[in-house]
Nucleic acid binder design. Structure first.
Lengths: 234, 234
DNA sequence: TAGTGGTCTAGACCACGGT
DNA sequence: CCGTGGTCTAGACCACTAG
């Protein structure tokens, strides 16, 4: 049930309930959730409010709507091969590789929206005697949320591990824009390029389940990475 | 002014007007646009409709809102964001745009796996007297599955509509690799580039629900497209 | 035809920011 | 204080889908 006097808006409360039911499987993948009309009755709110909640979940990709048919659950809309946030580190370990990070730069910076810890790392794998770098990651971590984050040595520790274990914060969503970039000197050196090339860059934010920003991120992908994308259409 | 009897929804019409004013600089970067109350008066529509239009532009990244202050123009110039293949025509129509296709090349070709119909199109939107091209799509359609596909005029018809309505085949999944490419002469002409640039290319296959290949596809995205990607961890 | 989502109206009260 | 956006109500009519 919803609490009309809560500071949390009704649509956000409903959103949470629906998300829960989708993720626990009470609403099954591909099947319809109750109609908007039903939801207005069940929760005793207007359709506008129901639509706001559903709209957000559609935006999020958890639901889709079909005119005249209904609102349906969509799980696993997008998968990604290299773009997994449970991390880079775990991903490579599973493949039997030895992940390596080299910190290129770290310092406090002030962006318009507050104070951040800037962390720039080259990340890759150990190959025999050599290191093959795959990405250059630049993170801007809000110090308001992660006070003392500068104490950690991120050439050894995983950023997301620290967020989870030390701050009890769980990265959940990311929204990035993919762009082409032309290699600069840093990229040339890290990726061992012999001349100027086009590379891919992903730039965006990582948030927790409430949509709070955890990190501004910018990742440049080296030439050894394929950016594979699978989508499901309806 | 808005046309209440147009098939294009009022919010989409308003959206288009606002987008226009932002992009032409009538609403300047960082400055506020008229308040929601003013817009309701100016266009003689309700605030709900105004908010729907503004909401979409906020989503698109062209505007941001600050509680108690106003609605402001955002510096970055994001025009279109496309996250899957299904959306092109519908996505643009919803925005009150007029999608345009120009067939650049079409012929039968033999690939190692069989006979295909090659269809290369530039796709974009009508802007006043001009056409702004957004993508160059190259499709290879298996003739074994789509005999007679060469009869259709794909400058007018949607490829997927034909697949659905004439062949009763439904595109469902896609698997593509995203790569950077350097512009060639065709791209230079279609996208009206003044010099060589890095662009994005998606290359892969589209399948139906049984995993049967419907199309090999290669899409080059012009500089007016941002490739926005949202991921969720579960 | 009945049920669904898509659009829109005409209000209301609230919280926030700056004066 | 006033003007801004944020939320919400209680309706209405329409277009689409399926039986």
């Amino acid at each position: 049930m919803l609490n009309k006097h809560d500071v949390v808006p009704l649509y956000a409360q409903l959103e949470r309930i629906l998300r829960e039911k989708i993720l626990t499987g009470e609403f099954k993948d591909g099947e319809p959730i109750p109609s908007e009309a039903e939801l207005t009755k069940t929760y005793n709110i207007t359709r506008t409010t129901v639509r706001k909640a559903i709209g957000n979940l559609v935006q999020e990709g958890l639901l889709y709507q079909a005119h005249g048919k209904g609102t349906f659950v969509r799980l696993q809309e997008i998968k990604y091969s290299i773009w997994n946030f449970e991390g880079f580190t775990d991903y490579l370990r599973k493949k039997g590789e030895h992940p390596v990070s080299r910190v290129l730069e770290q310092k406090g910076v002030r962006l318009d929206s507050g104070d951040y810890w800037k962390l720039k790392r080259a990340r890759g794998v150990q190959k025999n005697e050599k290191v093959l770098f795959l990405t250059i990651d630049t993170s801007y971590i809000p110090l308001r949320k992660f006070a003392g984050i500068d104490r950690y040595d991120f050439s050894r520790e995983s950023l997301y591990d620290v967020m989870r274990k030390e701050y009890h914060v769980y990265p959940r969503n990311s929204e990035v824009v993919i762009q082409p970039v032309t290699s600069d000197d840093t990229m040339k050196e890290i990726f061992d390029l012999d001349n100027v090339r086009s590379l891919l860059k992903a730039k965006g934010i990582v948030t927790d389940e409430r949509g709070d920003e955890l990190e501004k991120v910018e990742i440049v992908y080296g030439p050894n990475i394929e950016f594979k994308l699978m989508t499901k259409m309806r």
